[in-house]
Write a protein that binds this DNA or RNA. Structure first.
Lengths: 144, 144
DNA sequence: GCCATTTAGTTGGTGATACCAATCAATGTA
DNA sequence: TACATTGATTGGTATCACCAACTAAATGGC
């Protein structure tokens, strides 16, 4: 099924990436749901694994409005996944840390996602996996 | 087992796919937002481009509960993107069609997504693009 | 044929998500 | 010091997605 880029038709490579992304999204969603997390909370925890950003930076990472992040952190804090920590430099800024419990959840999520991604990649040879990593790095490198 | 699957740490290939998927997701989200659509509505329109499924099949496609799809179609119909059509075979089933306006939106969305994906893939050689398509098909083929 | 069961879809209720506009407090700057 | 800017929150709205309960239509058993 070779494609022609007709009116509004997506190109083969666009189509391929979109389809795979939805499959990956499904893996992430199901993994998150298993721990009663939303996809955004999963991302949040992933980001906080090796960072303690302020609200603005977090909004930037997640591509969300700051007010959205306020609510997100409210709910995550209520569930003891993260902690708000006032900055000592600037009394306006709030830094976000993963709580110990949040870190544990992060580890469990990582395992779940790994397992399910393994299923998704079942039958994909090592060579192709290396290609995935290589090409992904290229794509992400040029993505500001 | 060339890798150490340490505590909750994601493997390189998992990480690569997740990162790229979020980048693609961002492309889709921004394209959808430009036409005041949600990501789910974008998917809906994509699905209806070459199908007229009933509610149950649509729920299956989208991985959503049937009640979620009811609301989704309510809102899409209110915006004249889709049309509910009663089946003649079985008075219980409702078939969903793209409206003419919905089809136009689908074409514009396709163009937007293509353009933004082109940006995302800026600098990726043709050979790698072919690899993406090839590997994606493999992954999706084994994904029941 | 008739009634129980199954199937398709909707409704109502809840919580999460995300936006915008407006606000408040702390900083910076003229 | 007065004014503007910045970081974050609040309030209001709409969407999204779930579950449980419900209606209507079709099926199956007898």
């Amino acid at each position: 099924m070779s494609e022609k880029p007709a009116t509004g038709e997506t190109t083969p490579v666009t189509d391929a990436l979109v389809q795979v992304s939805f499959a990956v999204l499904d893996v992430l969603n199901r993994s998150a749901a298993e721990l009663d997390l939303s996809l955004t909370q999963l991302r949040l925890i992933g980001i906080l694994r090796d960072r303690s950003p302020n609200m603005a930076a977090l909004a930037e990472f997640l591509g969300l409005d700051r007010s959205s992040v306020s609510g997100l952190i409210d709910r995550a804090e209520r569930r003891d996944l993260v902690v708000r920590r006032p900055s000592t430099d600037d009394a306006r800024v709030t830094l976000i840390d993963l709580s110990p419990a949040g870190r544990k959840v992060g580890e469990r999520i990582g395992e779940l996602v790994n397992a399910r991604m393994d299923e998704l990649l079942n039958g994909i040879p090592v060579g192709d996996r290396d290609q995935i990593v290589r090409i992904a790095q290229r794509v992400l490198a040029s993505d500001t």
